[in-house]
Simulated scan of single mutants.
Amino acid sequence: MRVALLVTCINDAMYPDTGKAVVTLLRRLGVEVDFPTAQTCCAQPMVNTGYLDEAVPVVRTFVDAFAGYDAIVTPSGSCAGSARHQHSIVARRSGDPGLVAAVAETGPRTYELSEFLVDVLGVTDVGAYFPHRVTYHPTCHSLRMLGVGDRPRQLLEKVRGLTLVDLPQAEECCGFGGTFAVKNADTSVAMGSDKARHVRETGAEMVVAGDNSCLMHIGGLLSRERSGVRTVHLAEILAATEDTESRSDGPAVGARAGDRA
């Protein structure tokens, strides 16, 4: 199986450890993964903001970069959702039958990380060790657009040493929403504050999610509140082992988005 990593813009720019964790994890499971260097943005910001024509060359770059792979794996529900659902809209609008055909190939082969692990590889126990108390936030695109359901929880429940606590009002949006946070800042902060409050109520050391964009938003609020609660991407927990934990003063891995916001 030829597998490619779609690392996403935010991970490339701000959270490279998440992309590295995906590679570490997949290799541990016997999957060789490529990193197509021609990849850029998935085009989601343009599509969400209504710039569909401007998204056409971005989608074209995407399908060229990932052509020929059996699976495209990404640590982001929002970017996977863009490839699976938005790319076909952009391609049809372009009027280019070649682009429509190319998107029909790459779209269905794009998987959010937990989908790939559970549905394609058929594993829930990935050999991870992470002795911390965490709570899980299901991000909007993974929950509503992709329908990942309980796949991330299945994976977290098999992590040795990890204590998973339920998040109140878990399915409520964190308020980030990409450009929504910029255009509707007051509403975004209010929604994020509710999410941060629910995270604090769990008594968890960390909040985990499948999208660093959401963790950046939640983590920023938790940091400003001096809550002491940190953020960590799902991939980084799943990549952790006894060995990485023993060589670290704290959690072996972790996006720590709140510390960087």
Results as ranks from 00 to 15, higher is better:
5 L>D: 03
6 L>C: 07
6 L>Y: 15
18 T>L: 06
18 T>D: 02
20 K>H: 15
21 A>E: 02
24 T>V: 10
32 E>W: 10
37 T>V: 12
37 T>K: 13
42 C>Q: 02
43 A>V: 04
49 T>V: 09
50 G>Q: 10
54 E>N: 11
55 A>E: 01
55 A>G: 00
57 P>M: 09
60 R>W: 15
60 R>K: 14
60 R>E: 07
61 T>W: 11
63 V>Y: 12
63 V>G: 01
67 A>C: 05
69 Y>P: 00
69 Y>Q: 05
70 D>M: 12
73 V>R: 04
76 S>H: 06
77 G>F: 04
86 Q>T: 04
87 H>P: 10
88 S>G: 09
92 R>V: 00
95 G>C: 09
96 D>M: 08
97 P>F: 09
107 G>T: 09
107 G>L: 08
108 P>H: 04
110 T>G: 09
113 L>Y: 02
115 E>L: 07
115 E>Y: 02
116 F>W: 03
124 T>H: 15
126 V>S: 14
128 A>P: 03
134 V>A: 08
136 Y>R: 02
136 Y>Q: 00
144 R>K: 10
146 L>P: 02
154 Q>Y: 13
161 G>P: 05
165 V>F: 15
168 P>M: 05
171 E>W: 06
173 C>Y: 04
173 C>G: 06
176 F>G: 04
180 F>L: 07
181 A>R: 06
184 N>W: 11
185 A>S: 13
187 T>Y: 04
187 T>G: 08
189 V>G: 11
191 M>F: 05
194 D>T: 06
195 K>W: 10
196 A>T: 07
199 V>M: 08
202 T>K: 08
205 E>V: 01
205 E>G: 11
206 M>E: 06
207 V>A: 02
209 A>W: 02
215 L>M: 09
217 H>D: 01
223 S>Y: 12
232 V>P: 00
237 I>S: 05
241 T>E: 13
241 T>C: 12
243 D>R: 14
244 T>A: 14
245 E>D: 13
245 E>A: 14
250 G>I: 05
253 V>H: 14
253 V>R: 02
257 A>E: 01
258 G>K: 02
261 A>S: 14
